[in-house]
Simulated assay, not measured.
Amino acid sequence: MTDQPSPVTRISSPRMLVMGVGSSGVRAVAAMSRLNPSLAAVAIDTDTKVLEDASIERIIHVGGSITRGFSAGGDVELGRQSIEKDSSSIRTQLRQVDLLVIVAGLGGGTGSGAVPVIVRIAREAGALVLVMAGMPFAFEGRKAARIADEAIKRIRTHADAVIRISNERLVDRSDADLPAEQAFARSHQVMTDGVFSLWRMLSKNGVCGLDFSCIHTMLRNCDGFCHFASADGAGENRASVVAEGLAKHRLLNKGKLLAASQGVVVSLTGGHDLKLSEIEEVMNRLQENLPEDIWLNFGVVVDPAFDGRLAAIALVAEQWKEPLVDDANRQLGFSFNRRQGPMQGELPLETAGKGEFAYIDPTIHNNQDLDVPCYIRRGIKLPR
C-alpha cells in the first residue's frame, strides 16, 4: 500500500483594509482608490457631501441623527458620538481584517473624535492597527494643535503604532510660493506612498524576504510611534536618488532620526530591470546612518509597472521594546486565533463593548483605557 501525499493546505493571505476617517482622510483614501481600484478601502464621515464627492464604493455615513448630514464643525465630542452611534457598521467592516490602516487628519472634529473609537473597536476585533495621522499646520492655531495632541493620546491607548505626518515639516520657507492645494496634498501623497507599499508587500510575492510577520513585529515593538519616509527615482541614477531621498527625508528630520533609531523596515519596489547593485547602493547608503545594533529588515518586490523606476519606503522606530506577553488575539499578526476561537481552557482576550456606557468618555491614565479589564490590557491569559 503506497502512502498518499497529504493534501496541500491553502493558507489565506493576510487581509488589509484602509479606512479614511473625516474629510481629510476620506479625500486621501478616495485618491488612493482611483489610483488602485484593487485596494480594499472604506470612507467614513458625518458630512454627506464629502462622501458623495469621494466617489468610492464603500462608504459609511455616521452620525446622521446628530449632525444631520453636515460636518462635526470642529466639535470632537460630536465626532465621537457619531461613530459610537453607528459602531455596528464599523464592526461589520472589520470582519476578517488582519491589518487596518486608518488615514485621517487630526485637529478637527470628526477625525479627532472618531479615530480613537475606531481604533478601540478594531483592537477588540483582533486586527493589527496602524494609524497615519496628518498633523495640522502651525497657522491653523493652538486649539487645532491641542485637539490633535489629545486625539493622539487616545489613539495610542489601543493602536499598535501611530505615524504622525507633520504638515509643518513637509513644507519650509523655500516653499513660500507653493500653491496651497499642493501644500495640503503633500501629506496625502505621503499616506498614499505608505499605504501602497504596505499593500504591495501583502499582495505580491517578493524576491527577498519581507512579509506581514515583519510588519507585525515592527508595529508591536515600536512603543507606539514610528516614522515614515518614501522616495522614488527613475533613469540611470535612480538608486542614488532613492538613497539620498531616504537619508535626508523631511519626515526623518533630514536623516537625524535614523541615527537614533532602534528598528527599521525597508521595502524596495522595482521592475524586472532592477539590479542587485542598485539594491546594495540604497541599503549601504541607508545603513551609513543607522546604529550598528539596530533591528533591520528589508524586502524587495518586483512589479512590472515599475520598469525603469525604483521606489522605497522606510518605517523607522525610535524606541524598541519587546512585548512582555503574547497577544492571543493577534499572534503572528494573522488573527487566525481569532477566527478559530480561543484556546480551550483560557478566557478570550477580547471585550464585548461597553454596552450602555458606550457614550461615556474612557478613563485614560498613562495612555491606557482603565475601563478595559487589566488582564486584557496586559494580554494575560487567564484559566477558565
Rank of each mutant, 00 (worst) to 15 (best):
361 D>C: 01
323 P>W: 01
174 S>R: 09
349 L>D: 00
143 K>P: 03
63 G>H: 06
113 G>P: 05
266 V>E: 05
33 S>T: 13
310 L>T: 06
282 V>E: 04
207 V>H: 05
83 I>S: 07
20 G>V: 08
26 V>R: 06
87 S>Q: 15
154 R>Q: 12
197 S>I: 00
324 L>V: 06
227 H>E: 15
299 G>Y: 13
382 L>H: 13
200 R>N: 07
275 K>N: 08
131 V>Q: 10
173 R>W: 01
81 Q>E: 06
160 D>C: 07
52 E>T: 14
250 R>I: 02
69 G>H: 12
309 R>C: 03
42 V>Y: 05
298 F>N: 08
190 V>G: 05
381 K>C: 08
137 F>N: 03
52 E>M: 12
1 M>W: 00
141 G>H: 11
349 L>A: 00
266 V>M: 15
71 S>G: 15
302 V>N: 11
282 V>M: 08
276 L>D: 13
223 D>I: 02
93 Q>C: 12
188 H>T: 11
47 D>M: 02
124 E>P: 02
195 V>R: 03
80 R>N: 07
337 N>E: 09
14 P>W: 02
212 F>Q: 11
75 D>S: 15
113 G>L: 10
214 C>F: 13
84 E>F: 06
363 T>V: 12
119 V>M: 05
360 I>M: 13
192 T>C: 04
233 G>L: 04
147 I>P: 00
136 P>I: 04
326 D>L: 09
182 Q>I: 12
201 M>E: 06
378 R>M: 04
46 T>R: 14
355 G>H: 00
260 A>K: 15
123 R>L: 00
35 L>V: 09
174 S>E: 10
328 A>I: 01
318 E>W: 04
176 A>I: 14
356 E>R: 14
325 V>T: 11
19 M>W: 12
254 K>P: 01
128 L>I: 00
225 F>M: 15
173 R>C: 02
131 V>A: 14
111 G>A: 10
73 G>S: 05
256 K>I: 04
46 T>F: 12
241 V>R: 02
202 L>A: 05
59 I>A: 10
69 G>D: 07
261 S>E: 09
86 D>P: 13
262 Q>E: 13
162 V>W: 05
246 L>W: 08
160 D>L: 03
80 R>E: 12
303 D>H: 14
214 C>L: 05
184 F>W: 14
166 S>L: 03
256 K>Q: 14
151 A>G: 14
372 V>H: 05
366 N>P: 04
21 V>P: 09
364 I>N: 03
3 D>M: 09
184 F>Y: 15
341 G>I: 01
185 A>V: 01
74 G>E: 01
113 G>D: 04
348 P>E: 00
266 V>F: 03
150 E>T: 07
224 G>K: 02
47 D>H: 09
325 V>H: 12
229 A>P: 05
213 S>I: 07
4 Q>V: 10
380 I>Y: 10
155 I>D: 08
231 A>M: 02
60 I>S: 14
371 D>G: 03
303 D>M: 11
242 V>D: 04
47 D>K: 04
37 P>M: 04
67 T>D: 04
264 V>H: 01
30 A>E: 13
133 A>R: 10
235 G>W: 03
354 K>L: 07
358 A>F: 08
